[in-house]
């Protein structure tokens, strides 16, 4: 039996180590080549590296987005009835009337079923279905104005008594599901983390258990607890909800302007 391998190398640990190094070097070169070729494959035609051109394109894309948003909102703003604008790329939810923002909320997260419509669409709210019950305080006949004041001062009515998880059922089987993440005041970071995990898990299970049972076109929006309650508090029984969802690839604007709960004045 020959003591030399067919590569003509003297076999031994040194040879094997050299082979390993060689193979690794070849692979490294291959991966680099592949990376470069893939990088070229996804280059956008007509895009150059000029920062001015890039800046102009970003500006133009932003303006086109704004134009579409204002145009989509205009028919609702013409009507004096309040309306809601859910701007998914901007991550905002606003209650507006005649173009004026009454309240603004920041969307923390969202989930959309496959058949929820893309593009700009106005949904008509027909029903609000809270997942938590809101208990109203009852007053007894004969309690009088002083009795009312006493009850109210002990247990005041306000947005804090509203549910934070609810479904806004709209026409044509559409639904805007509002869900809340615990606010920063709801405990330590650990407690908040556990609460978030719990709520998301519950929601996942709920979604999974209802999968296939309904053909609803659902958009799920996650707000903070306070915002979610304030939105429920502020909504009239019937309202139009405009969903703005640009085609993928159009950049989201800066979110730093997104207010939270405050009116635009």
């Amino acid at each position: 039996m020959s003591s030399r391998c067919r590569f003509g190398l003297a076999p031994g640990p040194e040879t094997c180590a050299a082979l390993v190094a060689f193979v690794l070097a070849v692979q490294l070169v291959s991966v680099c080549t592949l990376t470069m070729s893939c990088g070229r494959a996804v280059d956008r035609p007509g895009e150059d590296s000029s920062s001015d051109t890039e800046r102009l394109r970003i500006r133009a894309a932003g303006l086109m987005r704004l134009e579409r948003e204002i145009t989509a909102e205009y028919p609702l703003a013409r009507n004096p009835q309040p309306y809601v604008v859910v701007n998914l790329p901007a991550g905002t939810l606003e209650l507006k009337a005649s173009g004026k923002r009454l309240r603004g909320f920041r969307i923390l997260d969202m989930y959309r079923t496959e058949d929820a419509p893309l593009g700009e669409a106005a949904w008509n709210l027909v029903d609000r279905k809270p997942l938590q019950r809101t208990q109203r305080t009852k007053i007894q006949p004969g309690s009088g104005q002083d009795g009312v004041v006493e009850v109210v001062s002990q247990d005041p009515w306000g947005p804090h008594r509203m549910p934070w998880d609810y479904d806004l059922r709209c026409e044509e089987g559409r639904a805007l599901e509002i869900r809340a993440l615990p606010s920063e005041q709801s405990g330590s970071r650990f407690v908040r983390g556990v609460k978030i995990l719990y709520r998301r898990t519950v929601e996942r299970i709920r979604r999974w258990s209802h999968a296939g049972q309904s053909n609803r076109r659902t958009l799920q929006i996650w707000l903070s607890e306070r915002d979610s309650q304030l939105l429920f508090w502020s909504l009239p029984k019937h309202i139009k909800i405009l969903i703005i969802n640009h085609a993928p690839g159009v950049r989201a604007p800066d979110r730093s302007n997104a207010g939270s709960g405050a009116a635009g004045r």
């Binding site: 956008r44 086109m64 690839g249």
Partner: peptide, 9 residues
């Protein structure tokens, strides 16, 4: 994915 609308490219 395109970063801009096609007409800008």
């Amino acid at each position: 994915p395109s970063r801009y609308p096609a007409e800008l490219v």
